[in-house]
Design a protein around this nucleic acid. Structure first.
Lengths: 252, 252
DNA sequence: ATATTTTCTGAAAAGTTTTGAAATAAACCT
DNA sequence: AGGTTTATTTCAAAACTTTTCAGAAAATAT
């Protein structure tokens, strides 16, 4: 059997188990340990696995699923998509839009291509959306990458949003009550405030699971928000209480 | 049987399996190994498959190519990987490394995980590498996304690299002669200079196709470079002329 | 239609790369 | 520390490629 074929087989085996011993590989593939070892060296050099004593293991990150957040997209998937769609229609051609991190904002961002917008973002997933599209001008804030979210955080990101002015900010969060908007990621809060300061109009996109909920950190009062978009499953009582506080609410 | 007919058959076979041995092809098609081999050479030259020892494989592997730049990775693929590997070994644990844009630098960057480095970069592909890896601290420069390269450019990116100090800069380019390093992407030049200023040690990774070549813009003199890593196919005469100018050159 | 040139094919010789085994060195475990 | 397991190095055999060449097939010219 040829080297290419063997390497493919090794990768297939490693995609199922996390670790394989050299001995097991040699047995399963039917080649000598020396040969397998050489294959492993090659595969390690191309970054496809990690060699260990006695075998090999998968390299830590899964190159397939870019972001852990992709998985979270499952919950309220349809609702998030509808909210995103509604937010995207509020953007006019060639406007400058700030896009926050989070799945719902991501759903909005991916529907903006036809508007030829200028997008300011600290979200790596959003940046990747338009990485090979010439129609959208995408400006990425700098910052330290916060792995779980794919968000750029820290002083560099914060300063970035202090420099610009935008027509619109499409924001996300983890909860909203009559007391204000909440977010569980404390690192993001200061950046989100700067985003809101920089935008003429602030829109929050929160699925119904977040309406009426609080989270660790309070981001802002409701009067800092121009529009909340959520879905029809949200409790009407709570939405009423928000409207009474002067917040414009749209349900989709 | 005609050559065109055989080639069509080879492609049909390869569209089903990912790899075929020469022997199997010769048997299935009913031609001598010599003939099949010549067909494979032709098909490889037109980029329709990749020849290997003992057979051929489809070229369309790595379905995850998020970026157009991935396609360019085909040329000098092995050389770039080897150069990247060599550059990665120069990084010590927990060092701070600046990673430029470009495929060769990308190959180096993806081999840094075990070094637990702090990476500063304006390359979106590099950022994505460690988007869900906690072991690497990744700091992304801000900037306007230049779609074709996945690079962040402009004053934000330039200023970013002016703020930091790093142990090492792993750089790419489009050409090197005794007159200096060249790059065809003018937008990147100013940023690259800032990267080099910020690093204690500057390493350029250029495959042999770029040795002895010039390009539109001159990036810097050779004395700004601490080490050039290239592959063995590079012309020895030109490498000698570079060494005579005091440049340290490593071939892999 | 026939002769001549050109291209293509398959086989053999010469040169590389790859492989598995043995010897040596390093790493791991208790 | 001592014993065991795993890696690295080394080397000859095997497998594969490239080169070369003569004959067959195809194309072109006469």
């Amino acid at each position: 059997m040829q080297s290419e074929q063997r390497k493919k087989q090794i990768q297939a085996i490693l995609s199922e188990r996390e670790f394989v011993s050299l001995e097991a590989l040699a047995r399963e593939i039917g080649a000598s340990p020396s040969t397998i070892r050489r294959d492993l060296i090659d595969l390690e050099n191309t970054g496809l696995l990690q060699r260990t004593h006695g075998g090999a293991r998968t390299v830590a990150r899964e190159t397939q699923d870019e972001f852990a957040f992709r998985n979270r997209l499952q919950r309220f998937e349809k609702e998030k998509a509808a909210i995103g769609q509604a937010a995207a229609t509020l953007v006019e051609t060639q406007q400058c839009v700030i896009c926050d991190t989070g799945t719902t904002v991501y759903e909005a961002a991916r529907r903006l291509e036809s508007k030829m917008p200028q997008i300011l973002t600290n979200s790596l997933p959003v940046a990747n959306l338009y990485a090979s599209s010439a129609g959208v001008e995408l400006i990425v804030s700098g910052g330290v990458l916060y792995p779980r979210l794919g968000a750029l955080v820290g002083p560099v990101a914060e300063k970035f949003f202090g420099q610009f002015n935008a027509n619109l900010a499409i924001m996300g969060g983890d909860g909203v009550t009559a007391d204000g908007i909440y977010n569980s990621h404390t690192l993001l809060i200061d950046i989100q405030r700067k985003m809101m300061d920089a935008a003429e109009r602030v829109i929050f996109c929160l699925d119904s699971g977040k309406v009426g909920r609080r989270s660790v950190s309070r981001l802002c009062d409701l009067d800092r928000v121009d529009l909340l978009i959520t879905d029809r499953k949200a409790s009407p009582e709570i939405l009423d209480s928000l409207r009474q506080r002067g917040l414009e609410v749209e349900t989709v």
